[in-house]
Amino acid sequence: MIIPPFTKTYGRRTVLRTPQLTFDPGKIYVLIGPNGSGKSTFARITAGVLDPDEKNGKHVSDGVIRYMPQKSYPFRMSVRRNIMLSGGDPERAEELIRRLNLTAIEQQKISSLSGGETARMALVRVLMKPCDLLILDEPTSAMDMESAMISEQLITEYRNLYGSAVLLVTHDLSQARRLADEVLFFQEGELYEYGPAEKLLYHPQKEITRRFLEFYGSLAK
């Protein structure tokens, strides 16, 4: 899937400027960078929920995209109905519900769920159907370690099953190390450096990337 170059400006401030990017099927692309670096804006524009600047034209995707926003909305209905909102195979729903420990609460109203349970429900919901590009904006940030690990397995399995390209926004560098085939490092609205995970995460070319990795890497150890 080819994403054309675009910019995003609020008032006089350009918050994002990216070159043309290609997301190959079956690969997991992890977006890293400090807060406010433009990762989520990039994810939202790529997903089609936010328009880039007018001069870039509206981004129209040439494939099916599924997107889980940072604050995925829990609709006022049962967990199961939320999961089945976009349809999909009920047997797959059962499997995902079981794997992410939602069986006991699948008939409960969404209002009674904790933040972590809501995040698990939102992930199951977006994984229900195949797509060409799966975009996940910090899907595990509200989850405990065990759920986050299971979620990572499910994301990898989804990629393997459907051959989708996956775009994952995360602040968790160890998660990036576990999942990424390619890494995109954002800094102050620019795609500062990108390339294979092995190269970028362990041997970054640019000083600013190296400093970011050192700082967050040392925190994650």
């Binding site: 997903a47 089609g48 929920v49 599924r66 889980m68 995925s72 609709f75 977006v126």
Partner: peptide, 15 residues
């Protein structure tokens, strides 16, 4: 305050 969240979630699910 909830409309954008609802729109993005629904759009992301292909609704």
């Amino acid at each position: 305050p909830i409309s954008q969240q609802i729109y993005e979630t629904a759009f992301g699910l292909g609704l």
